[in-house]
Amino acid sequence: MSKLIQAAHLFYDYLIRDENDNVMATEPALSDFSLEIEQGSFVCLLGHNGSGKSTFAKLINAMNLPKEGTVLVAGMDTRNEDSLLDIRMKAGMVFQNPDNQIISNVVEEDVAFGPENIGIPTDEILRRVDEALHKVGMNAYRLKSPNQLSGGQKQRVAIAGIVAMRPECIILDEPTAMLDPTGRRDVLEAVHELNKKEGITIILITHYMEEAVDADRIVVMEHGKIAKDSSGRLMDDTPREIFSRVEDLKRLQLTVPVITELGHELKQAGIPLPDGILTRDEFVQELKKLRK
């Protein structure tokens, strides 16, 4: 598999300014952060608030530029202004608040916004909008106003708006934080579908550990770089490996899925369960094995 995103030695600071616009202090958000993401993979970025996840996300599609280091998206440097639109086309971004990223009062017009911006001909736009709405299961709401939709539906419209640009990668920055459980499930289902069927690379930033379980790879961030566990290994691995390190995650102010936590507690209490149980089914299987 080829590398879609190559980030090397990134540094990024937020500047805190006083009333006269003089820089008072700098708040480092990324410090020597490197990460490569494979085409077609589903990567989940975890980390508590201020660990640099969103900062990294904004560097990928050139919303911000790194102070030091380079980001390559499909081989294009984000510093190069000529490839700005190409990069944003390749790496689309979905934000937390569904209301603040929908531009139009009609669903289909909103989905068409991206393709319109990049100058796609009219009949091609119609085809893409159709396709994108089908892919996220929102075709029935095509002519509705976003105000009539639930949060989860609005978020799926926002995803369709990105899909219509035919991206290779979608970055989702806490897309489910403002949704109810049903909306959350629908959005994740749509995202997984896009990953499996269309081969779109997904970078999911989330606070919900249950959402990270189904990823191909989890990267835990802390203080602007990839976190290390107690034995010095980078916290960048499969969900099973990451969630085996319950104590490390807790130290990083993160939780683990409830079922993993339960397995961990039982193991601590002397029951010989394996580490990193991720689903309820798995848990049941392991318990059955013990009974034999």
Binding site: N61, M63, L85, R88, M89, G92, M93, F95, N97, N100, Q101, I103, E108, E109, A112, F113, G114, P115, E116, N117, I118, G119, I120, P121, T122, I125, L126, V129, A158, G161, I162, M165
Partner: peptide, 22 residues
């Protein structure tokens, strides 16, 4: 937020824009 989302969706003013429903 909206400005950011619009930029992320390749908005760069009226130049070179096409329309779904001309």
């Amino acid at each position: 937020d909206l400005a950011l989302a619009m930029e992320a969706r390749c908005y760069h003013g009226g130049e070179g824009r096409t329309k779904m429903h001309p």
